[in-house]
């Protein structure tokens, strides 16, 4: 059983949400361990500090693989933003200098929710229909907030763990594809796991 660490901009929301989604598919192959409590997006940019803590966490928790999750705040086609995040991940990878290493960076969690909009509709009692591919929705977070603005229950980022618990892994895999997508991330992960 592999131990996969998850680092994100929000331990309680994003890391737990991603862990719950991946567990649906890989519960017999891996356990998911959220790392770096109390960190924020800005905190993750403090590379030296992040590396020190990660080294300690990886050693103590016997982490085999590491998933770094960062918000893109834009489209996956926005090269400049992607380059910035990739360069950040490379710096972390370079400074960690411990084995085993594997860094997969995925972007914009809310886009995954859009990829299974039926489940979201069910939770928020909506009938929203997505007009574009979830990968080409420029501000998925804002969209979710906007479409629930007049609903009894409004979308909050802290809802993510509950939503991800109910999302359909296969639907996200099918609907979020291409470069820098959930599908490409999963393929890379499976290559390493198998």
């Amino acid at each position: 059983m592999k131990r996969i660490g998850i680092v994100s901009e929000n331990y309680n929301n994003d890391s737990i949400a991603v862990g719950r989604l991946l567990k649906k598919k890989y519960s017999d192959q891996a356990v998911f361990v959220p790392l770096l409590k109390s960190i924020s997006g800005k905190g993750l940019d403090e590379i030296r500090k992040v590396v020190k803590i990660l080294k300690d966490e990886i050693k103590q928790k016997k982490i085999d693989l590491l998933i770094l999750v960062r918000d893109l705040d834009g489209l996956t086609s926005e090269k400049k933003k992607i380059n910035t995040i990739e360069s950040w991940a490379e710096k972390i990878q370079k400074q960690l200098v411990i084995n085993p290493q594997l860094f997969i960076v995925i972007f914009e969690l809310e886009a995954f929710i859009l990829a299974d909009i039926e489940t979201f509709n069910k939770i928020y009692k909506l009938k929203y229909q997505l007009k574009t591919s979830p990968k080409f929705q420029s501000e998925p977070k804002e969209l979710l907030k906007q479409i629930t603005r007049k609903s009894k229950r409004k979308y909050k980022e802290s809802d993510a763990p509950e939503i991800f618990q109910q999302l359909n892994f296969q639907k996200i895999y099918q609907n979020h594809k291409g470069q820098n997508s959930f599908q490409s991330f999963i393929k890379e992960l499976e290559n390493t796991l198998n």
Binding site: V31, P34, L36, K37, I39, K49, K52, Q60
Partner: peptide, 17 residues
């Protein structure tokens, strides 16, 4: 303080999903 703030060192149970 870093271990307490950023890691689960002082938590009684490790969060594992």
């Amino acid at each position: 303080s870093d271990l307490w703030t950023w890691t689960s060192f002082f938590d009684e149970e490790e969060t594992v999903i």
